[in-house]
Amino acid sequence: MPHIKAYKQNEIIVKEGDTDQKIFVLISGTVAVYKNNKKISEYSNEGTILGEISPILNIPRTTTLKASSDTELYVYDYPIDELITLHPDFAIKLLKTIAARLVEATEKII
């Protein structure tokens, strides 16, 4: 099961380059995403999945996540294969999240 962690406004959740494999789900608050110290996105919808790229690809963090306000997150701190096996519904939500972000990124390019 995930645990709940609270972050204060402006607190770093993960840093670009970190090697942890946690995945986060937003409970409340707002999380900003930074690439090379430039804010590229922000999320405030309950249930938003964050930090999924590194565990899926088994690479260091590609972005920094920072709490833009006081924030609570579910933290899944076990291997992605185990997460998907234990929570198959999470896998479907994860696929939908990735697809939606791909569409969003494509639209920004065009």
Rank of each mutant, 00 (worst) to 15 (best):
M1W: 05
H3V: 09
H3Q: 10
I4Q: 10
I4N: 09
K5Q: 12
K5F: 07
A6I: 11
Y7R: 12
Y7P: 08
Y7A: 04
K8N: 08
K8E: 04
Q9P: 02
N10L: 14
I12C: 11
I13K: 13
K15P: 03
D18W: 01
D18I: 12
T19W: 06
D20P: 03
Q21L: 11
Q21A: 11
Q21E: 15
K22T: 08
I23K: 02
I23F: 05
F24C: 04
V25S: 02
S28T: 03
G29E: 00
V31M: 00
A32T: 10
A32H: 13
V33C: 03
Y34T: 05
Y34L: 15
K35V: 14
N37Q: 12
N37D: 14
K39I: 08
I40G: 06
S41K: 12
S44L: 01
S44F: 02
E46C: 03
E46M: 15
T48R: 02
I49M: 12
I49K: 06
L50I: 11
L50C: 06
L50T: 09
G51P: 01
E52M: 09
S54I: 00
S54H: 01
P55K: 06
P55Q: 03
P55E: 13
I56F: 07
I56G: 09
L57H: 11
L57E: 15
I59G: 08
I59E: 10
P60Y: 05
P60L: 03
R61W: 02
T62C: 07
T63E: 06
T64M: 11
L65A: 10
K66S: 04
K66Y: 04
A67I: 08
A67S: 08
A67T: 07
S68Q: 07
S68M: 11
S69A: 14
T71L: 00
T71G: 00
L73N: 03
L73C: 11
V75L: 07
Y76N: 01
D77Q: 06
D77A: 04
P79Y: 00
P79N: 07
I80H: 08
I80W: 11
D81S: 10
D81G: 03
D81A: 05
E82K: 05
T85V: 06
T85R: 15
L86I: 05
L86D: 15
L86E: 14
P88S: 05
P88G: 11
P88Y: 10
P88A: 14
P88F: 09
P88H: 15
P88E: 13
F90N: 10
F90S: 02
F90H: 07
F90Q: 11
F90D: 11
A91W: 12
L94I: 06
L94T: 05
L95E: 04
L95Y: 10
T97E: 11
T97L: 05
I98H: 01
A99S: 08
A100E: 07
V103Q: 13
I109K: 11
I109A: 14
I109R: 13
I110Q: 12
